[in-house]
């Protein structure tokens, strides 16, 4: 009911136990390739690589991946269309290189999105956030983000349940009623989040919380083969794109 499909996929992915740093290297590498290499054949290769790796070795359900890739499509399509419509003294018209420019934009964006999704569908946030410490993100910030991650599921459950209860009592049967109900819903969830934080503080004090939320990070060792494969693959991808 409140599960986020991408998150669900990350927890059961075949790459779940791979080092988050390894996966970060691969995804960010692919994202940069998508951005920097010429769209043909660079973006196409990046997109294909991301999809093949996700659906193949990482065993992400195709349905989840496909649906998630569709999310930014509306923005990409509308944005690309807007850039190639030309406004001038003579009103609206197509830019001279409209098809190529739009195709280029869509190519970069879709390939980039697929590359980010490869990371998102294979790495739970609770693995990724501790890895940010290596990028010199302060521990306090990582802890705040970790609590955010845990608590957003608690609040999403409240949100959908309260909304369902409101709907049952006709709270969303018209625009007016719906606004009123949404205001109450937001207020209820805000109150709930406060209350949760206060009670959690009580609960954690009993477990000896003094400074910070230190936990033992899961040991997810880096794989030399994976890193070597990543570097070689990205280099090959870049070489092919530049030569072609």
């Amino acid at each position: 009911m409140t599960g986020l499909a991408v998150d669900d996929a990350a927890w059961v992915s075949a790459w779940r136990l791979r080092s988050p740093a390894d996966k970060l290297l691969l995804s960010v590498g692919l994202v940069l390739c998508a951005l920097l290499l010429p769209v043909w054949p660079g973006s196409l290769l990046v997109g294909l690589t991301a999809v093949v790796l996700a659906l193949g070795p990482a065993r992400v359900p195709a349905r989840t991946f496909g649906r998630a890739v569709r999310v930014p499509l509306a923005f990409i399509a509308l944005g690309a269309l807007t850039t190639v419509v030309q406004v001038g003294s003579g009103g609206f018209g197509w830019a001279p290189d409209a098809a190529a420019r739009a195709g280029g934009l869509v190519g970069h964006a879709v390939a980039g999105s697929a590359a980010v999704l490869l990371l998102a569908t294979t790495t739970p946030m609770s693995d990724l956030l501790p890895a940010l410490a290596r990028l010199r993100v302060p521990a306090a910030v990582i802890e705040v983000a970790s609590v955010t991650y845990r608590m957003l599921f608690v609040l999403l459950t409240s949100l959908s349940t309260i909304r369902e209860a409101q709907t049952a009592r006709m709270g969303h049967s018209g625009v007016r009623a719906s606004y009123r109900s949404s205001g109450m819903l937001a207020a209820a969830v805000l109150t709930r989040s406060w209350d949760r934080a206060r009670r959690l503080q009580d609960g954690l004090a009993g477990r000896g919380m003094e400074a910070g939320l230190r936990v033992l990070p899961e040991a997810l060792p880096s794989s030399r083969r994976f890193v070597a494969g990543t570097v070689a693959g990205l280099a090959a991808l870049a070489a092919v794109s530049v030569v072609a």
């Binding site: 306090a140 802890e143 705040v144 983000a145 970790s146 609590v147 955010t148 991650y149 845990r150 608590m151 957003l152 608690v154 609040l155 999403l156 949100l159 606004y179 949404s182 819903l185 937001a186 969830v189 805000l190 989040s193 406060w194 949760r196 934080a197 206060r198 959690l200 503080q201 954690l204 919380m209 003094e210 400074a211 910070g212 939320l213």
Partner: peptide, 26 residues
């Protein structure tokens, strides 16, 4: 957080609320 360790939880809750608020369909 250094001055008030417990504010980690409040800030986390605030972040979660902001995320969830953007899931309310208007």
């Amino acid at each position: 957080v250094r001055e008030h360790p417990e504010s980690t939880l409040l800030l986390g809750a605030a972040g979660a609320f902001t995320f969830v608020l953007s899931a309310i369909k208007l």
